[in-house]
Write a protein that binds this DNA or RNA. Structure first.
Lengths: 103, 103
DNA sequence: GAGTGGTATCAGCCACCACTGATGTGACAG
DNA sequence: CTGTCACATCAGTGGTGGCTGATACCACTC
């Protein structure tokens, strides 16, 4: 099933910059400075998006002196992957059995 | 890897109504009339979204007299699931090995 | 043919949201 | 304490995109 929490999550991840952030964080835990370098976006802009990701529970912050490390929470992406996997399996069955509603 | 085609796909699926359409079509091949009943959206609105999904290669149309059946292409959702699965695996490894870039 | 029902297209409106500049806060170095 | 750097917050703006009503198109029935 696709819960409404999952739907919200997809909307949040669907933004190009946020998806780029998530992809970068999947490979390496980074702080804002690194993300500014990697994405080329302004610090303010990034901070806004990171706030959205934080409030959605996609990333966690870890203060380190003046820096703030952002780490991606794997279970969130795993849940997303599972939802899509389930949806794909359902779609596959529907096509293979030609399940169709009569008009 | 997340190709740019995949990112576009996510943006397209992220819309609430389109995600609802995709979920419905995953379970059963339907025509526009059914989708109007199920979603409660206007026919015009649905037709617009279906156009987007069609042009993105997410769904296929199958004319049947006056009706038009819409069927979801499983391989598209499977590709999406695979991308997220890969991303989740990478994120899991990053967390477990505490991979982190120094400031 | 005329009428009806299913669907697509078009043009306009409006709301949301991404981006920005300015500013505030908090931590370190000198 | 002062300056600097990393980061967050705020208010304003602009553009994209979703929704709508009107309309056109096509297939079927009579």
């Amino acid at each position: 099933m696709m819960t409404s929490a999952t739907t919200d999550l997809i909307r949040i991840i669907a933004d190009p910059l946020r998806l780029q952030i998530v992809t970068l964080l999947a490979h390496e835990t980074l702080c804002t400075t690194h993300l500014v370098e990697e994405t080329g976006a302004r610090q303010t802009n990034l901070s806004n998006h990171l706030r959205v990701l934080r409030e959605a529970g996609v990333v966690e912050t870890e203060p380190c002196g003046r820096f703030t490390y952002y780490k991606l929470k794997p279970e969130v992406i795993e849940a997303l992957a599972a939802s899509f996997g389930e949806l794909a399996a359902t779609a596959r069955t529907t096509i293979e059995t030609n399940r169709k509603r009569a008009c």
